[in-house]
Design a protein around this nucleic acid. Structure first.
Lengths: 137, 137
DNA sequence: TATGAAAGACTAACTAA
DNA sequence: TTAGTTAGTCTTTCATA
């Protein structure tokens, strides 16, 4: 992981379809070098995957979920990851145990999702934050 | 947004470099249809961007930041988005105002980042959660 | 939906550190 | 031995009909 790797990642984070040739021009190297480095970073797991950011609805939100002490949070996480509005699920340290990142049609859909979460026996409480703006690092 | 769109998105979410021809085969349509739909979803903003998920360090964490009331959180967000460990920055509703998602080499690097945040005049307090596991919805 | 041209990615052989 | 370069080939994309 040197500075050239970081430059390549910064370009790909903003648009992962940027051609190797264009990346090479912008960072001042050859297409082959960019390709070799991207492949190396994939092998090493530095690049976990090529993906996309979507906004199918009008609301993005974080839902912090407290899970009962005697419950395996992994099982709860897996279940919630299946819900269609859920983009990803984090198991976290701290006051709450699980954080959902959701992309929902509207506030009503967020509410439905929270209700659905609270109806699970394993869930003690939830705290929701709307995501008002996202900036890429 | 019909079922075909959702199928295309599901494939691209797992690997956004999947060729249109392969997606077409898997969902049972033509390359042109897939391409047109992806372009339409880009235009509509359903696909926000093609990006990648990285893990450059060993630690992922969420840092919830409270900002002083008289401060424009956008300015603080922009500044923090520049920090190399920061993957993205959300402005959120709720108790805290800004959430950083960071990917750092180790706990010491997370600590340095928190210190750096707390040294800003605009920052009142921070609360950090380690991300122990991530699951894709 | 089909097809050909253009763009991009991949292979492999080579060079340099 | 590892990283980088380059030329030739193959694949994908894109525009047009």
């Amino acid at each position: 992981m040197d500075d050239l790797d970081r430059q390549i990642l910064n370009i790909l984070r903003r648009d992962s379809r940027t051609p190797y040739t264009e990346i090479a021009d912008r960072v001042g190297t050859s297409e082959g070098t960019v390709r070799n480095r991207v492949e190396r970073m994939l092998d090493e797991g530095v690049i976990e995957r090529f993906t996309l950011a979507t906004r199918t609805g009008n609301i993005k939100a974080m839902v912090e979920v407290s899970v009962a002490v005697d419950v395996d949070t992994t099982v709860v996480s897996e279940r919630m990851a299946e819900w269609p509005e859920v983009d990803f699920v984090w198991q976290v340290s701290g006051e709450e145990d699980v954080v959902l990142v959701v992309d929902a049609a509207d506030t009503a859909a967020v509410n439905d999702l929270i209700t659905q979460a609270r109806e699970l026996d394993e869930v003690k409480s939830t705290k929701t934050r709307l995501i008002l703006d996202e900036r890429i690092g």
